[in-house]
Simulated assay, not measured.
Amino acid sequence: MAQARQTFERRQLGLTMRRLRDAAGKTQSVAAEAIGKARSRVVQLEDGTATASEADLTTLLDLYGVADETERATVVDLGAQARRRERRGPHYDVLPDSYLRLADLESSATEINCLEQGIIPGLLQSPYYLRAVFGEAEGVLWKRGGKEITERIEFREHRQARIWEASKQPIMRYVITEDALRANMGSPEVMHQQLTHLLKLMEEHPSLTIRVLETTMYGNPLRGTSLTVFAFATRGAPIGYATAAFSPSAYFDDEDEVAGMLRVFHHIWERSLSRIDSQMMIEGIAKEL
């Protein structure tokens, strides 16, 4: 392993290796012994400040009991990306199981700032709502009757558990547009459950603040789009994230680009209803159902 500056690609690799090690129940010392390195080198790898050779990654995958060939190939590809010279521009995650790497970033963040338009964000979705979301896509975005919908539901539930059941949660700021609260997702009963779920989350998790952007509000330069910015305190620079329906999701780690995303987020945050007024609006819409 060679000492390296933290980049997005190296951070992705590090978070993946940490998740696999934790799942295997192995310590960093055991991992270091397996590849003949000091424990500090495994720490650096998992922190995204060191790269790893293909041989070392393969040894660690064997140690962690990773048998799935697709998953092993993905880690090797991540390692190759991490060893390359830093490049500019957004990073498009086109490797398999990209949703797992999003969850790794999410659960390691100390702060999450998210603007979601037209839909309730994944972390905030209630059980019946998230099933309705994937139900609308079944038979359209993927074949009906396959295992994909089950896998997507299980992953989203796991992703939620990683945040809501954690001993220490990040500071979370969410802006949701009013039309998402009034949407016809599933049924009126599903929407009522979803709205009460939002209220319960805010009550149980002081680190979470939800603000509603009213439909009548002017000054939204991101109409029709969504964004998320993850911050990591002293453990790394913030990372921006933007989804797309028919192309890979894009990650941004350029300082100016991420600063611009945060600037737009706070612009919309200030134009949204306060926490208390947002709660009152959610309660009012729920009573209408």
Rank of each mutant, 00 (worst) to 15 (best):
R88V: 09
R88W: 10
G89P: 09
G89T: 07
P90E: 05
H91Q: 11
D93Y: 08
V94N: 08
V94G: 06
P96N: 02
D97E: 13
S98E: 04
L100N: 12
A103M: 14
A103N: 14
D104N: 14
L105P: 00
S108E: 11
S108N: 10
S108K: 05
E111K: 12
I112V: 15
I112F: 03
N113T: 14
N113V: 07
C114I: 02
L115K: 00
L115Y: 14
Q117F: 01
I119K: 08
I120P: 08
P121V: 10
L123K: 03
L123N: 06
L124A: 15
L124S: 06
L124I: 02
S126Q: 07
S126C: 09
Y128A: 13
Y128S: 12
Y129R: 00
L130G: 00
R131A: 07
F134C: 03
G135D: 05
E136M: 13
A137H: 06
A137D: 07
E138A: 00
G139F: 00
V140L: 06
L141P: 01
L141D: 11
L141G: 06
W142N: 02
K143T: 14
R144I: 01
R144G: 06
G145V: 02
K147E: 14
E148D: 13
E148P: 00
E148K: 13
E151W: 06
E151H: 11
R152S: 03
R152P: 01
E154R: 13
F155K: 05
R156K: 14
R156D: 01
E157L: 15
E157W: 00
E157F: 09
H158D: 10
R159F: 05
A161F: 04
A161N: 10
A161P: 05
A161Q: 12
I163D: 04
W164Q: 06
W164I: 02
E165K: 15
E165N: 14
A166G: 10
A166F: 09
A166S: 15
S167H: 12
K168S: 15
Q169S: 10
M172G: 01
I176R: 05
I176F: 09
I176W: 05
T177R: 04
A180S: 14
L181G: 08
R182G: 03
G186E: 06
G186Q: 05
P188V: 11
E189S: 12
E189P: 00
M191W: 02
M191D: 04
H192Y: 11
Q193P: 07
Q194L: 09
H197T: 02
H197S: 10
L198H: 06
L198P: 06
L199Y: 07
K200N: 13
L201G: 09
L201K: 12
L201M: 14
L201F: 07
E203Q: 11
H205D: 07
H205I: 09
S207I: 00
S207E: 15
S207L: 11
L208W: 03
T209F: 01
I210M: 07
L213A: 10
L213V: 00
E214H: 09
E214T: 13
E214Y: 02
E214V: 08
T216Q: 10
Y218D: 12
Y218Q: 14
G219V: 03
G219N: 07
G219R: 03
N220I: 05
N220H: 13
R223P: 00
G224F: 10
T225R: 13
S226D: 12
S226M: 14
T228P: 05
T228Q: 08
T228G: 04
V229N: 02
V229G: 02
